[in-house]
Simulated scan of single mutants.
Amino acid sequence: MEITGLISALVIGLVIGGLGRLVVPGRQHLSMVMTLLVGVAAALLGTFAASVLGVSDTSGPDWLEMALQVGLAGVGVTTLARSRTRQFR
C-alpha cells in the first residue's frame, strides 16, 4: 500500500468514525484513536457489505454504502462505549 492510500484510509476512517459518534445519542468516552479505528473498520466492512449487496457501483455518490459505513460505525462506537463504561464501574 502506498502512503497516499494509507493517509486517505486514515482520513476516511476518522470522518466515518466521527459521523458514527454523531448518530449515537449521548456522550461517548472514546479517544480519537479508538474513533479512528472504529471508523476504519466500519468503512471496510461497509464497503464489503455494499459490494455483496450490489449497491457499491452507482453512477453518483454511493449513499447507501456511506449509510452502511456510518451505521456500522455507530454500532461500533456504542459497543465500545458500553464496554468501556462497564470496566470502570
Rank of each mutant, 00 (worst) to 15 (best):
L68R: 04
P25L: 06
G17E: 01
L37F: 11
V40Y: 05
L64P: 00
Q87M: 13
R84V: 15
R27A: 13
V40W: 05
R82A: 12
A41C: 14
R84N: 01
L45C: 11
E65P: 00
G54K: 02
L10W: 03
G17F: 03
L37C: 14
G71Q: 08
I3L: 09
R89T: 12
S8G: 06
D62Y: 04
A41L: 15
G76C: 00
G13H: 09
L72A: 03
R27E: 15
L19F: 15
L53G: 10
I7H: 03
A42Q: 01
G20N: 05
L80I: 03
L19H: 08
M34G: 02
V11Y: 10
G76W: 13
M1A: 15
V38S: 00
R82E: 14
L14A: 14
G54I: 07
P25Y: 02
V11N: 06
R86M: 11
G20F: 01
H29S: 14
F88R: 12
R89D: 15
A42K: 00
L19K: 02
V38H: 00
V70S: 07
D62A: 15
V38R: 00
T58R: 08
L72H: 09
R27K: 14
L80G: 04
G60H: 09
I7T: 12
Q28E: 11
A41G: 12
V38G: 00
L22D: 13
L64Y: 06
L36I: 12
G13T: 02
L45N: 06
G74I: 05
G74Q: 04
T79D: 12
T47D: 09
V77R: 01
W63Q: 04
R27Q: 12
V15M: 10
T85C: 07
L10I: 15
I12W: 10
V24P: 09
R21L: 10
T78N: 03
S51H: 10
Q69W: 02
H29G: 10
S56M: 07
V33A: 06
L30W: 00
T4A: 08
H29F: 06
G39W: 01
P25V: 01
A67D: 03
L19S: 07
G74H: 10
D57Q: 07
L68Q: 05
G71A: 13
I12C: 09
L68W: 07
T35G: 15
L72Y: 01
V33L: 01
F48H: 02
R86T: 03
G46S: 00
L22C: 10
L30H: 02
R84Q: 14
G71E: 10
G17H: 07
M32D: 14
V11S: 08
I3K: 08
S56W: 06
G20L: 04
R82P: 11
L72Q: 12
G20P: 00
P25T: 07
S51E: 13
R21P: 01
T78F: 11
A81N: 15
V75D: 02
L37Y: 08
T47M: 07
V75H: 11
A43R: 01
T58L: 12
L64M: 08
A73W: 12
S8P: 08
M34E: 14
L37I: 15
R82W: 15
